[in-house]
């Protein structure tokens, strides 16, 4: 009896300690999220402020909107392009740092981390200045290297706007991938690798059959995190191109922003936001599965 009472008392105290944190997360994340999901099915009259239920009409409308479809396509290009290069470059750096006898690894790590540390707004502005068609350094360096002869209008031409934002995003996130992967590589057992080598495995075989399986769950985690962050990111594209020119670099987050704060079409914005949330949640659920699997293996 007394043991039972003590357990109940313990139960209550646990909730008390986590209550403030939950309160903030509920008020600023959960309630707005639910509101968005409901408002996707509601239409707000701008003048009277009246809200009425319109079913899936707004979802049908956004899927018929060519700009929405363009935004979905751009989101896919932006996410895939960013994540592939972020991962490849970061993965190669991690392997070099882990395998070779480079001296001064600490200082190399610090230098490589500068993009990750600089505030995003600062990075966006400095890159914007570097992309300047007349006075920017990027065109100048490419010209001197003989790669281009004519200046490129990086952020203000439809064919390069999204690419220039992808370059900035890759630049920013490579250090994150490199450090995460390096930590995973350091966790691979040296004995296992040596044992395989003694048994006559070539270094390529060791890499693909021992190192890769050992680090795969951390690598999956990194890729899923990168995908979610990139898909929902707003700052870089907004500051570099504002989704332009002519919507050519408008990803879903900018489409939602434009519908909500420029066109004041709250219903459409909420419907599009719900779509974005569902995609994110699907990826997050995958992530959760990987994390749980990793924890179980440990």
């Amino acid at each position: 009896m007394s043991k039972n009472r003590r357990r109940i008392e313990k139960n209550c105290w646990g909730y008390v300690y986590i209550a403030p944190a939950l309160l903030f997360v509920f008020a600023v994340m959960l309630i707005p999220l639910i509101y968005t999901l409901i408002m996707g099915f509601m239409k707000t009259d701008l003048f009277t402020g009246k809200i009425k239920f319109v079913g899936v009409k707004q979802f049908i409308r956004i899927f018929g909107d060519p700009y929405f479809r363009l935004a979905v396509k751009n989101t896919f290009l932006w996410t895939a392009g960013s994540v592939v290069f972020q991962f490849l470059i970061g993965f190669i750096i991690a392997n070099i740092l882990n395998a070779s006898q480079v001296r001064g690894k600490t200082i190399i790590r610090i230098l490589l981390m500068v993009p990750w540390v600089l505030p995003s707004v600062v990075s966006a502005m400095v890159w914007d200045w570097s992309y300047h068609p007349d006075y920017g350094m990027i065109n100048e360096m490419l010209k001197r290297a003989g790669i281009i002869t004519q200046s490129i209008n990086w952020t203000s031409s439809g064919s390069t706007a999204l690419i220039s934002a992808i370059i900035v995003n890759v630049w920013k996130m490579v250090p994150f991938v490199a450090l995460m992967t390096e930590a995973a590589l350091q966790g691979v057992s040296q004995d296992l690798k040596e044992a395989a080598r003694v048994d006559g495995a070539k270094s390529r075989q060791v890499f693909f059959h021992i190192v890769i399986p050992e680090i795969s769950s951390s690598v999956n985690t990194v890729i899923l995190l990168l995908s979610i962050w990139t898909m929902n990111s707003f700052t870089f594209i907004y500051l570099l191109t504002e989704g332009g020119p002519a919507h050519s670099s408008e990803i879903l987050s900018l489409y939602i922003y434009r519908q909500a704060f420029k066109n004041y079409d709250f219903g459409t914005a909420s419907a599009a936001a719900s779509v974005l949330f569902v995609i994110t949640a699907a990826i997050a659920l995958m992530y959760n599965r990987f994390v749980i699997r990793r924890d179980r293996e440990c």
């Binding site: 939950l22 707005p32 995190l225 709250f266």
Partner: peptide, 29 residues
């Protein structure tokens, strides 16, 4: 330090908070 109902679920759901797209929250907030 405490075992209570929903401990695991609540701490796992924080993970989703970490990935919540800011743009989805912007308008209702």
């Amino acid at each position: 330090r405490f075992e209570f109902k929903g401990n695991k679920t609540l701490s796992a759901s924080l993970l989703f908070g970490q990935m919540m797209p800011a743009i989805v929250l912007l308008l209702p907030l």
